[in-house]
Amino acid sequence: MTEQTKELAGCAAILEKHPGEGRDSLIPILQEIQENHGYLSEAAIVAVGKHLKLPTSKIYGVATFYNQFRFQPVGKYHIQVCRGTACHVLGSLSVLEHLEKEIKLKKGNTSKDGLFSIEVVACIGACGLAPVISINGEFHAKVSPERIKKIVNDLRRNHE
């Protein structure tokens, strides 16, 4: 089974659990799909549209309104950069910019080799460690542009 057919089968299984439902169950369905596959693929959205009799443009509109939905699979290393108030005050913008430069990837995207993805989050509740980033759930405290370089290099080396 290819990745896509596997994913579509999973999507169909989720939709089966919501028979005859209307537009009000759109968000729960999208959440469930994302939980299963890590992101919302085009094929999944089309399938949801058929199931709920909603135009894809509308579903795409709803999904892009909320930060929680992703349209690309996350990378092997999913890096969340906290842009909350405390982190902002201690220079998280510069951390983010260096990170984007270091892995040549814009926030919200996944690198072509599937190694990295960057997500900006509002606050991850670790203000005492600001500025903080989280890689696959593991926190890195008081990061600086220099440390970013080291962290990324370590990850690359790990991968090789």
């Binding site: 959205i45 135009p55 894809t56 443009s57 795409y60 509109g61 892009t64 309104f65 909320y66």
Partner: peptide, 25 residues
């Protein structure tokens, strides 16, 4: 497009100052 024609080819996407009217994806 939606309420007169019944086609819904375009809709608002994004939020806040990033809102833009777009086709699906």
């Amino acid at each position: 497009c939606e309420e007169v024609e019944g086609v819904s080819a375009i809709d608002f996407s994004g939020r806040g100052n990033k809102t833009v009217i777009e086709t699906a994806f």
